[in-house]
Amino acid sequence: MTTIRHEFYETDEKLTLSVFDKGADPAQVSVTFRPRSFTYENGDKKLVLEPLKGQIDPEKSDYTVGKVKVEVRLVKVAPGRWSALIGDSPDPLSPFPSSSTTPAVAEARRRHKNWDSVTEAILSSEKNVTSDDDPNAGGDASVNEFFQKLYADADEDTRRAMLKSYQESGGTTLSTNWEEVKKSRVEVKPPEGGEWKKWGV
Rank of each mutant, 00 (worst) to 15 (best):
E145C: 11
A141S: 14
K149I: 13
K22Q: 12
T64K: 15
P51I: 14
W82E: 02
R36P: 01
R5C: 06
E71N: 14
V201G: 08
S61Y: 12
T173Y: 04
F96W: 07
S61C: 12
K164Y: 11
E71I: 11
R5Y: 10
F38M: 12
E10D: 04
E13M: 15
S117M: 03
W196H: 15
T39Y: 05
Q167H: 11
D140E: 13
E179D: 01
K45E: 07
A121N: 15
L163F: 03
R5F: 11
L49N: 08
D132Y: 09
S98M: 06
F20M: 10
S125D: 15
P95Y: 00
F38D: 08
S165G: 06
A104K: 01
W178C: 08
E195T: 13
K53H: 05
N114E: 04
S131N: 12
S37K: 08
L93Q: 00
L47G: 02
E59N: 12
H6Y: 10
R110H: 04
A121Y: 12
S94Q: 03
S61P: 08
V75L: 15
D12S: 05
P103N: 00
R160H: 02
D153P: 02
Y40R: 08
V19L: 09
K182H: 04
P103C: 00
S165R: 14
K198V: 15
L85Y: 01
V188T: 13
P58F: 05
I122L: 15
K14Q: 10
G139P: 08
A108Q: 03
V19N: 11
S83C: 01
K198F: 15
L163C: 01
V201M: 11
L150H: 10
V70D: 10
K182Y: 03
K22N: 10
S100V: 06
G194V: 01
S165T: 11
S37H: 03
S94H: 00
E126W: 13
T11E: 13
E195K: 14
L163A: 08
L93Y: 00
V118P: 03
L52H: 05
V118A: 04
V143F: 12
